[in-house]
Design a protein around this nucleic acid. Structure first.
Length: 876
RNA sequence: GGGCGCUUAGCUCAGUUGGUUCAGAGCAUCUGGUUUACACCCAGAGGGUCAGCGGUUCGAAUCCGUUAGCGCCCA
């Protein structure tokens, strides 16, 4: 059978993914095995697959596939998130393009459009994940707004309300004027911007030529001013106490008040107070019983309360009021100024601090067990450095504003009565019954109740995800009891507060235990210049194009090559290219072995026997290293281990050692072991590169229908000889030296050479002679008792090797080489002696370390003696 | 402004309780190579005062202090 010399992923990936699906290998149902569970961080229904998803889901798939091959009942639950603000914004935009205004629609009418949109786009990203090889149990695909998940959200709300954790209040919130909703603190992104500081003078009431000057970055808000404030310790203004000033343009009279909050150094030391539009001003206003004048509408235009510019946008007004103030003689000057401005994470609109009535979740009690869980490592963070960040946030946690003035989401289950009082219930029927009970009025009907118009923050459903995907709020506990707590969560560190912290809180609150045992934080995928990948920069490759070019296996490897846990990673196309090259390497090693002609009658060469003995040990050793990497969540290190094991140890060393001479058959015993090793290696590599390993595994031996590497078990642990690994390293060193000899003298591999060894204490293992002979083409390796005249020589440890060459050796060059080696070894010995002659070292260091130094000394001394002797002979 | 973290080869990063030549890997560079598995390859080589300074220790990339630069989070 002819096997192509290049591996072609397009021939295998689709085929095997279908095979896995058709055989139901991704499916998990509770059984007697130990469960291994991951819930996917649900991507937004608005999203398309980006590099962050690629990284994230590659890691999850690796963990899941490995767990499955360790005999666990692996379950990876996929799903999507309704992303209320983002989705609603997209739907509103789409409708607008179609000439439909949201306000012209009823709530139900709008939701019909939103569902249509979700049905059309929501599944795209999950389909894309299949191209990556994701082994999710697709039958479990969940959506944060489907029936089961919604029920969980509503039940948890009612439960938290009944426990007294949820309250309604008027607070300064972050208002997104574009989405026209409040957002939580976590959804505000602060950015440094160049703005201007406007110095504006206010006339003192009753004194025509007397003014105070304030500095502000937001001149339009003067229309909402209700005071001017100075520091009581500021003597410059002490004479103004008790006086009043007039707000420019509208001539409203407002008091001058005193509060230590004012920084005397900043600006003019005189601060305008606008309680409705600044959180600090709001607090000062509370202290001094000031009015609040809200001059803005929900969409960021000025309201009637502003008296001027009514209906105009806030930024437009800022420009116009500058001119107006200038003309009226109130603008003293402007200065360039850098400050931080809050932007909406979802819409990028400038956030307005705004007073409004919202629902809040008290976080104090909820955060305690969640903080302890992480600090005590009951929930482990990888890398652990995120514990600090987590603690800081949890210790300063603020109440969570959970209401959103949107339609797309879970409608808040609060029902108001005509008098403004309300009941909280899971269903309308329950609400009505409750209302009748509370009011004592059995005649109430649903028409007398009005449900809250707002919906809940999206994260109020996401934080329940590890519970709700197993219907944890439902009656049947079989699933949740089996799969919960889940094992690992893999997510970006940017949502540690949005999501991770809150999931942990929800886990303890609703299930009484942790939601997952480990959190693996990934870094952000950046381009090679270190910039975040974004659509607007156009610096993000299309993941599906990458898969088409390099294969899913190649891309998976590429993602991992640059991704230590938690650190940002710089992505460039050379990485998936390297992954593709690795796939090709694997392919060709397989091709070599598979194409050998086998002759069962042939005896096994000694060199092959030694090679097998060595590789067996090497494989076992690395198998343990890989397991250790996984235990510590060093996934890229684990990949690097299999990479070098396959490429260097298996391909470059093992296969070269057993390779039969050109066009010669191989003996049966060696061939079988080579196939066996390939089988082991494919299984070790499978979690990283599922497709190529399945393709090869299927071809290695006869497989039955329905068999698959993905449901096979990892190579079992076997005892191995550690000694042989050390011996082999010495052999390698001799081989490398021999290759150098050939290269330096231009002796081609096909010319047979001889080798003599003057054995020292260490450095030469005679039993490997057959391998040595084969790999560097020697007719014999012969032990000698004294130095060989006229031969090129080199050392391994204290053993000296001689290669007689037909051409005369160059004495000058030989001398130079020996001299430099002598110099190096003497320097090395000096360093060792310095340590050994230090009494405190000998006394203080562990015995093992001292013994090692003594061994180094013996080796160096023997070598120096030998070098000196060789030099003397050459000179003679 | 408060807190956290980072600085190791040209680049991206490892370095896992301070002790095997511990100064590493991959990529890149350079030198050789059409030895029929693989040029998506093979055999080699060069390259770092581990940011600077000071300290603890028999011993420091590793621990402590400090300076500089960078990044992140929160105000």
């Amino acid at each position: 059978m002819e096997i192509a010399s290049k591996y072609d992923p397009s021939q295998t990936e689709g085929k095997w993914y279908s095979y896995w699906m058709d055989n139901g290998f991704f499916k998990s149902v509770p059984d007697e095995r130990e469960p291994y569970t991951i819930v996917i961080p649900p991507p937004n229904v608005t999203g398309v697959l980006h590099m962050g998803h690629m990284l994230n889901n590659t890691i999850q798939d690796i963990l899941v596939r490995r767990a499955r091959m360790l005999g666990k009942n692996a379950c990876w639950v996929p799903g999507t998130d309704h992303a209320s603000i983002a989705t609603e914004a997209k739907v509103v935009n789409k409708l607008r393009e179609e000439g439909i205004n949201k306000s012209a629609l009823t709530r139900d009418g709008f939701l019909a459009h939103a569902w249509e949109w979700t049905d059309k786009h929501g599944g795209i990203i999950l389909e894309q994940l299949k191209k990556l090889g994701a082994s999710c149990d697709w039958d479990r695909t969940s959506f944060t707004m489907d029936e089961v998940r919604s029920q969980g959200v509503i039940r948890s709300f009612v439960d938290l309300y009944n426990k007294g954790y949820i309250y309604r209040g008027v607070r300064m919130v972050n208002w997104d004027p574009k989405a026209k909703t409040a957002v939580s603190d976590e959804e505000v992104v602060h950015k440094e911007v160049n703005s201007k500081l406007y110095y504006i003078r206010y006339q003192i009431e009753g004194a025509t030529e007397e003014y105070v000057t304030i500095a502000t970055t937001r001149p339009e808000t003067i229309l909402g001013d209700t005071a001017v404030c100075v520091n009581p310790n500021d003597e410059r203004f002490s004479h103004l106490a008790g006086k009043r000033v007039l707000v420019p343009l509208i001539n409203r009279s407002i008091p001058i008040i005193q509060d230590e909050y004012v920084d005397m150094e900043f600006g003019t030391g005189c601060l305008k107070i606008t309680p409705a539009h600044d959180i600090n001003d709001y607090e000062i206003g509370m202290r001094h019983n000031l009015n609040s004048i809200d001059i803005l509408n929900d969409d960021g235009t000025l309201s009637e309360a502003a008296e001027m510019y009514i209906g105009q946008d806030r930024f437009e007004v800022r420009k116009e009021i500058e001119t107006a103030l200038q003309e009226a003689g109130h603008l003293v000057k402007t200065e360039d100024y850098n400050n931080k401005i809050g932007y909406s994470e979802r819409t990028d609109a400038v956030i307005e601090p705004k007073l409004s009535t919202q629902w809040f979740l008290r976080m104090g009690e909820l955060s305690k067990p969640a903080l302890d869980a992480v600090m005590s490592d009951e929930v482990q963070f990888h890398p652990a450095k995120f514990k600090n960040l987590y603690r800081h946030w949890m210790e300063n946690v603020k109440d969570w504003c959970i209401s959103r003035q949107l339609w797309w989401g879970h409608r808040i289950p609060v029902y108001y009565l005509a008098d403004g009082s309300f009941v909280v219930a899971e269903t309308e029927a329950d609400a009505l019954a409750e209302a009748q009970k509370v009011t004592g009025n059995g005649a109430l009907t649903m028409a007398d109740l009005h449900q809250d118009e707002d919906v809940l923050d999206t994260w109020a459903s996401s934080w329940l995800w590890p519970i709700t995907v197993f219907d944890g709020f439902g009656e049947d506990k079989k699933e949740i009891d089996y799969y919960y707590p889940t094992n690992d969560l893999v997510t970006g560190h940017d949502i540690i507060f949005f999501w991770v912290a809150r999931m942990i809180m929800a886990g303890y609150e609703f299930k009484g235990q942790l939601p997952f045992k480990n959190v693996y934080f990934t870094g952000m995928v950046r381009d090679k210049l270190g910039r975040k990948m974004s659509k607007s920069l156009g610096n993000s490759p299309d993941p599906l194009d990458l898969i088409a070019t390099f294969g899913a296996d190649g891309v998976r490897v590429g993602m991992l090559l640059c991704s230590p846990a938690g650190g940002d990673l710089r992505f460039e196309e050379s990485l998936p290219e390297q992954g593709r090259n690795f796939a090709n390497k694997i392919w060709n090693a397989f091709r070599l072995v598979k194409n050998w002609e086998v002759d069962e009658a042939l005896p096994q060469p000694e060199s092959a026997q030694l090679a097998i003995e060595w590789f067996e040990a090497r494989l076992q050793q690395e198998r343990e290293v890989i397991a250790d990497h996984f235990d510590k969540y060093r996934v890229s290190d684990a990949l690097m281990s299999v990479y070098t094991l396959f490429w260097d140890d298996f391909s470059s060393w093992f296969l070269e050692m057993i390779k039969p001479a050109y066009q010669q058959p191989i003996d049966g015993a060696t061939y079988q072991r080579a196939i066996g090793f390939l089988d082991d290696l494919m299984r070790l590599i499978h979690p990283f590169m599922p497709f190529i390993t399945e393709e090869i595994w299927q071809q290695l031996r006869e497989r039955k229908a329905g068999e698959s590497i993905m449901v096979s078990l990892m190579p079992e642990r076997r005892d191995f000889d550690g000694q042989i690994l050390k011996q082999f390293d010495l052999l390698k060193e001799a081989i490398v030296q021999m290759r150098t000899v050939r290269k330096e003298r231009n002796v081609p591999m096909r010319d047979v050479l001889s080798l003599m060894v003057l054995t020292g204490d260490d450095g030469y293992v005679p039993r490997f002679n057959p391998v040595l002979q084969k790999l560097v083409n020697l007719d014999a390796v012969q032990a000698v008792t004294e130095k060989v005249e006229g031969a090129v020589s080199f050392f391994v440890k204290s053993s000296e090797f001689f290669v007689p060459l037909e051409s005369n050796i160059n004495v000058e060059e030989e001398l130079e080489k020996l001299e430099s080696e002598l110099k190096y070894t003497e320097g090395f010995l000096a360093g060792v002696m310095k340590k050994l002659s230090n009494e405190r070292f000998v006394a203080g260091a562990p015995e093992k370390v001292v013994a090692m130094e003594q061994q180094k000394r013996a080796d160096a001394e023997a070598r120096i003696a030998a070098l000196k002797e060789s030099l003397a002979r050459l000179k003679a």
